[in-house]
Structures are given as C-alpha cells and as structure tokens.
Amino acid sequence: MSVLRYYCKDIDLRLQIEQMKIDFMLKESRKHYPKEYGGILIGRYSIDHNSAIITDVIFPTKYQNTKTSFVRGSESLEEKLTIEFNKDPSIFYLGEWHTHPNSGTNPSPIDKSTLVFLADHPEVKIENPIMLIIGFTKNSYECGFYVIQDKSIYRYDEDFNI
C-alpha cells in the first residue's frame, strides 16, 4: 500500500492519502474526459490535528460538468456521509476534489472563492477544508492539494522527508 504524504510548510499542516485513492479518482475522472469531474474527500485528523488522513472519496449523485466547470450537488451526500460516519465515527468530511482536464493544478478564481465559501459556511464544521485539483492529460496527471486558513489559501508540497 503506497501512501502519499504532503506538507504545507507555511502553516505546518500535513496530509496523507493512499496512491490507490488517487488512481481511483483518476480512473473515474477519465470516464468524463474532456469534462471536469469531482466529489468530496473524507477521512480523519490525527490526534494532534496536525495531519489530515484522507481515507476515501465520495462521488456525487448529482452534478453538472463542462470542460471548464464542475458543479457538485449535495443530494444523497447526507445519506452517504451518515453511512460512513456510522461505520466509523472518526470519519468526516475533509474537503473537495475536482479535475482540470488538459490543464494544470492551479486553482481558478472560482476554485479559490469556493474554498473561502466552504470555510465560512455554517454547515461546514471544519475550519480548514482541503481542495484537491487533479490536472491530467491522456498520458499524465498531477495532484495539487490546497488548504485554507484565515481566508488565505496554501498549497501542500509532496513530503519526501518521511
């Protein structure tokens, strides 16, 4: 089992995710090529809250997508999250992921404002939602992980020190 580790030096936050989860998101996303696709990230925080451990992803039941946009609905999410929460109460919503087909992993202005919107939303009880952007072409892909703190958005770097 290959685990990818990321570190955001600016605000000393870490995250980890299994390679197979990335592969899974990529595989599903390719089915929607050349349109964008996405969903939510679930998992837990380490005991000291320094690290986010992404354990799984959830695909939305309802969504709208084009080559340059992705709108995730919230229908059935409650049901799916409750099922996960009941299986393991330490699991909760950690953030969002979406793709940039034929493009890079830099967040667009809409991506940035959506992350701010999520962090401020009263129903979102985490203060630091994570956003994963998977930029991909036919033969390659790249992951960009971002997190928000106090309305500023920071990017994680792959952590090779562990």
């Binding site: 605000i11 000393d12 936050l13 964008e36 996405g38 939510i40 925080y45 000291d48 809250h49 320094n50 986010a52 340059t68 946009s69 992705f70 709108v71 995730r72 609905g73 919230s74 999410l77 409650e78 999250l81 409750t82 929460f85 909760f92 919503y93 969002e96 979406h98 667009s108 202005p109 809409i110 991506d111 959506t114 919107f117 999520l118 939303h121 129903e123 979102v124 009880k125 985490i126 203060e127 630091n128 939602p129 703190q149 106090d150």
Partner: peptide, 22 residues
C-alpha cells in the same frame, strides 16, 4: 494556537453545501 492544527468547530456529520469549481 492555530499553527499546525486543523480546526473543527463542532463534531458530527458535516453535510457540505453544493459547490462550483472552474
């Protein structure tokens, strides 16, 4: 101490609202 810690406002099931990305 916010540095180095993910923060949770409240425990429980979090249902994220619909969102748009570009």
């Amino acid at each position: 101490d916010t540095q180095g810690k993910y923060k949770i406002r409240e425990e429980g099931v979090i249902i994220p609202p619909p969102v748009r990305f570009g």
